[in-house]
Structures are given as C-alpha cells and as structure tokens.
C-alpha cells in the first residue's frame, strides 16, 4: 500500500472518503473505450494520488466529454502539460473534479513535438486560456482554438520557456512595448 494515500494531514484517507466510486468509474470508462486507453494508474498501487487514465490522443475529446457528461466529472480543475523529454514528447494533463462527491480524476494524453491537440473549448470555455498557456510555454498547437496567441510572454518571443531545452536564463529583450492588435476587437 502506497503511503501517500493514507496521510491524515491531507485530504483524508482517499479510499475512505470516496469509497469505490472511482473504481466504478474506471471500469465503466475502460468498457466504453477499450482500445483507446493506454494505461490506468490507481492510487494505492501506483505512484499517483488520484486515479490517472492515459488515453490515446484521437479520442481525448470524446473521452473527456463522456467523463464530463455521463459520469459527472464536470469541473475542469486544471489543465497543463508536462515535457517528458521522451517520445512522444509531451503529456497534456486534465484534472477533473466531480461536483457532488468532489472526487478527482486525472486524464493524460501523449502528444509528440509538432503534433496538434484537439481543443477542449467546446466542453469548458475556461480551457481557452489554459490552452493558450500550454501553447505559449510548450509550443503545443491546439486545433480549433479561436485565438491561439501567446499569453504570458511577449508576442515576439521565440521559443517556449517551459520546454526542458529552453535555458533558465534565456533572456530576450524588446525595446518597444508589445504591439497592440486592433483586430482582436473587431
């Protein structure tokens, strides 16, 4: 038994609080998407804190929609990416929360460098800026995103700072303020 699921100073005992709800979820989801699930990591046995499902990229939006609409994990807590330096290079990570039980599930998908991800904006409008941030920081393009610009860095910035090969001190200096684009208001 992994010690991190039974710490009383945090979130309580995971399995006590949520019972076997997440196991039912995992069974149901793996029945629905048999061939498209790469791996399922379970708290208690694997080194994760919440159930983690790694799915294949083509069905990610269907998978998220199913988790959201059919199983009630309808709150997008967080969306981010991880540079794994492997092949495929990136993980895009969604953290979903169930609004009634407040149980969480993590859904990951692998993306290669230069590959495009489908956008999750139809499901959560809040994913808009999260995707822009992932684009800015990792250079992952999102297909169907209405406004895929840089969000934290200057629009003229080169490279993607959170990639592992970007130097920590890779300064880029611009002598004029960031240009204003009136197209955005038309």
């Amino acid at each position: 038994m992994d010690v991190r699921t039974s710490i009383k100073t945090n979130w309580g005992n995971f399995s006590d609080k949520y019972g076997t709800a997440w196991e039912q979820l995992l069974t149901a989801l793996s029945n629905d998407f048999t061939s498209s699930i790469e791996q399922i990591l379970k708290p208690g046995t694997d080194a994760v804190d919440i159930p983690t499902i790694i799915v294949k990229k083509p069905i990610i939006i269907d998978f998220l929609r199913s988790t959201k609409d059919r199983y009630g994990y309808s709150f997008l807590s967080d969306m981010t990416a991880v540079d794994e330096e492997g092949d495929p290079r990136f993980f895009v990570v969604y953290h979903l929360m169930h609004l009634e039980t407040k149980a969480r599930v993590r859904i990951k998908t692998r993306v290669a460098d230069g590959e495009k991800m489908p956008t999750a904006i139809p499901l959560w409008e809040g994913a808009n800026w999260a995707e822009r941030e992932i684009y800015d920081m990792f250079g992952i393009h999102f297909e169907g995103h209405p406004d895929l610009r840089r969000i934290l860095m200057d629009q003229r910035w080169e490279g993607h700072p959170l990639r592992k090969d970007y130097p920590l001190r890779g300064y880029q200096i611009f002598l004029s303020p960031e240009p204003i684009d009136p197209e955005l208001l038309s």
Binding site: M153, D154, Y171, Q172, I173, F174, L175, S176, P177, E178
Partner: peptide, 10 residues
C-alpha cells in the same frame, strides 16, 4: 520583467 521594461521606460 522584460515585457514591462519598455513600458517603464515609456
């Protein structure tokens, strides 16, 4: 930061 520096100068 570097995005703000030109504005400060301005």
């Amino acid at each position: 930061n570097l995005k703000m520096a030109p504005i400060l100068r301005n």
